[in-house]
């Protein structure tokens, strides 16, 4: 199902959570709403679900106005950040819930419900868990059951609110791949909310970067990462060095784009090593520019590090900043407001 968000606004008291948002989501897309906390991404998701009502604007499902339709009529599946499994029900009952509460005429027979629940349990690879209670499951298992429960009612849109936010790093990594696979299999329009840029870049077809209730940029992971439209997007999508020149012009460069050499070359800048730490296959080096005294970070792989290193505090290197990005003054003001 395709979704169109048309000039949607929503405020809670004096706080404008969503301001005049415009967004087109094609059918079958896998989309990430990415932004810091308070950027309005969860509110937007809840507006699509019908869990919140609009102040103004329209939400269209397949070009039909659904703004005033109930949650029930929208046929959306929702996965909550903290799973929201029914504690007093078994896993089987949790998944069957959406089918059992249907009006009598639309309710499948008990046999059909049973078959459907077991096929979903198989789908999420937790068949042997049917008789357990949620408290007996791990976080990752709970989230998979929450997804199975949402899928039981055959939704046409799947909404996930920070689906992996409460899980540890390893489980999160596994579930990312798994959710991506599920989307590939079912091909239903899927929207997830995250504040983790890595998660968005890794999973989504389309990323919507949000800030202060507005959309900053919409694009593929590649577009938003390599062609950010403003400083906010640039900063939010990865590690960043920020330089301010004498005219207060701000320029940016990512740590992995900084080139370090042992000898001066072209317009390279001398810099002193402050700190070196290795993170897996990468080495991060904190340095101090000798010309402006500004601090910056460089990121090199271990191969490159062997070329220039081993380094210790106080060593002199030459840095070349060839890909400096600038966004003009307008963004700079916006940025200082955010930071």
């Amino acid at each position: 199902m395709g979704i169109t968000i048309e000039k949607v606004s929503k405020a809670f008291g004096d706080f404008a959570a969503i301001k005049d948002v415009q967004l087109e989501i094609p059918s079958g897309d896998f989309i990430a709403l990415l932004g810091p906390s308070g950027s309005g991404k969860t509110t937007l998701l809840r507006l699509i679900a019908g869990l919140e009502s609009l102040d103004s604007g329209k939400i269209l499902f397949n070009d039909i106005d659904y703004s005033n339709k109930t949650v029930k009529e929208r046929k959306v599946g929702f996965v909550f950040q903290h799973y929201a499994l029914f504690k007093h029900m078994t896993i089987f009952e949790n998944i069957a819930f959406g089918l059992k509460v249907r009006p009598f005429k639309l309710r499948p027979s008990n046999q059909e419900i049973k078959e459907r629940v077991y096929s979903l349990l198989k789908f999420v690879q937790l068949e042997h868990m049917a008789d357990r209670y949620p408290s007996q499951l791990s976080g990752g298992q709970k989230q998979r059951i929450a997804l199975a429960r949402a899928l039981a009612v055959e939704p046409e849109v799947l909404l996930l609110d920070e689906p992996f936010g409460a899980l540890d790093a390893k489980v999160r990594q596994e579930l990312r791949h798994w959710l991506r696979e599920i989307h590939e299999k079912l091909n239903i329009t899927t929207i997830f909310v995250t504040h983790d840029q890595e998660e968005a870049l890794e999973m989504a077809d389309t990323i919507v970067v949000m800030n202060q209730g507005q959309i900053e940029q919409i694009g593929s992971p590649d577009e938003v990462y390599h062609h950010p439209v403003n400083a906010f997007v640039y900063r939010f999508l990865g590690r960043v060095n920020e330089f301010i020149d004498s005219e207060n012009e701000v320029t940016y460069i990512r740590p992995h784009e900084v080139v370090l050499r042992k000898s001066a070359q072209g317009n390279s800048v001398p810099a002193k090593v402050l700190h070196v730490h290795s993170v897996g296959s990468l080495v991060r080096i904190q340095l101090n520019r000798l010309d402006t005294n500004a601090l910056f970070e460089a990121e090199v792989n271990t191969e490159k590090y062997q070329e220039i290193g081993p380094l210790k505090k106080g060593d002199l290197l030459y840095a070349t900043f060839s890909n400096l990005v600038a966004f003009g003054n307008e963004q700079k003001e916006a940025l200082t407001a955010i930071l």
């Binding site: 679900a49 949650v71 029930k72 599946g77 499994l85 504690k87 819930f97 509460v101 429960r149 949402a150």
Partner: peptide, 9 residues
Amino acid sequence: EEQAGRMLG
């Protein structure tokens, strides 16, 4: 849990 129930119809 109530919201989850509502989402499930």
